[in-house]
């Protein structure tokens, strides 16, 4: 191996060790007894008990299921609605198209904070605060970012396929459902997993909309665990650590299954 390749490899290996270390610390520390949280590196003495205790200390299983339900609803809603809108922009030529598309790009610039309070008032006026509906239902109307992504993808589909289907008498809905959707699969998967991740990360909306512990999603639940067992008068660090692992693990698993789409999605769109 030449020096030209050796030094970058060494530096990358060192950087990787630094990036991986916090994960390793988290997992190992969660497997140690509380009085050894900060003592040593390896999970010695080995105490996996925390992973049983954590389910009793807090309704983690309920939160996990809530996160799955909310996440899938949010991702599905945004993918389907954004795909419909994207198809409208990509396939049709109609008066007002540029103006409408400018509105899509325009909302991308708008920080979420600006609409935070009025959006809360809307959900409040229809009596849906305190439920999980506001966590995903806003996604039924498409999201600028995914509309943009999916439109770009659909513009790249060969037009003659659609025209041939039209000649054969297919309706526009058929064009969308039987041609555009199957051919856009990679882009649709990118939209779905990115929104699933965003929903799994979200702390702000659960903080605003949920009071009932039983309805919490994992991040909101983990925040409650921290407030109670890290800061509070009854410190149980091993519970906090195990709960953190439980919150993180599903996403890491999803990442390994959908790695290709994540990397492709980031490289083409810059979304994090």
């Amino acid at each position: 191996m030449t020096a030209r390749r050796f030094f970058p490899l060494m530096l990358l290996a060192a950087a990787s060790a630094i990036f991986l270390y916090p994960f390793l610390w988290l997992v190992f520390a969660s497997l140690r007894p509380r009085d050894r949280t900060f003592g040593g590196q390896l999970p010695i003495p080995f105490r996996p008990q925390s992973y049983l205790d954590v389910w009793d200390a807090a309704p983690m299983l309920t939160w996990l299921l809530n996160s799955v339900v909310v996440g899938v609803a949010a991702a599905l809603a945004v993918t389907v609605s954004s795909a419909l809108v994207a198809f409208g922009f990509a396939y049709f030529r109609f008066p007002g198209r540029n103006l409408m598309f400018a509105s899509v790009l325009g909302t991308m610039m708008l920080p979420a904070a600006v609409t935070l309070v009025p959006t809360y008032l809307i959900w409040n006026s229809v009596g849906l605060t305190g439920t999980q509906v506001p966590l995903w239902a806003g996604n039924l109307f498409g999201s600028a970012f995914y509309i943009f992504l999916l439109r770009q993808f659909m513009l790249g589909l060969p037009r003659y396929v659609f025209e041939a289907a039209r000649v054969d008498g297919a309706s526009y809905l058929t064009l969308f459902w039987r041609i555009a959707v199957p051919l856009s699969r990679p882009a649709l998967i990118i939209a779905f997993i990115f929104e699933l991740k965003a929903s799994w990360f979200d702390l702000m909306k659960p903080l605003i909309y949920l009071q009932d512990t039983e309805l919490f999603t994992l991040p909101r639940g983990l925040k409650a665990v921290v407030d109670r067992f890290y800061q509070g008068g009854d410190p149980k660090w091993e519970i906090v650590l195990a709960a953190s692992v439980v919150t993180t693990l599903p996403l890491i698993a999803i990442f390994f299954f959908g790695q290709r789409y994540f990397l492709q999605g980031i490289a083409t769109t810059g979304r994090r």
Binding site: P22, W25, T248, F255
Partner: peptide, 21 residues
């Protein structure tokens, strides 16, 4: 992939983790 893994950690968990680190 290794460099991207931290970005798959929910921010709440990141906050917790760094309180300890």
């Amino acid at each position: 992939t290794i460099f991207y893994l931290p970005s798959m950690t929910p921010y709440v968990a990141v906050g917790v983790l760094f309180l300890f680190l």
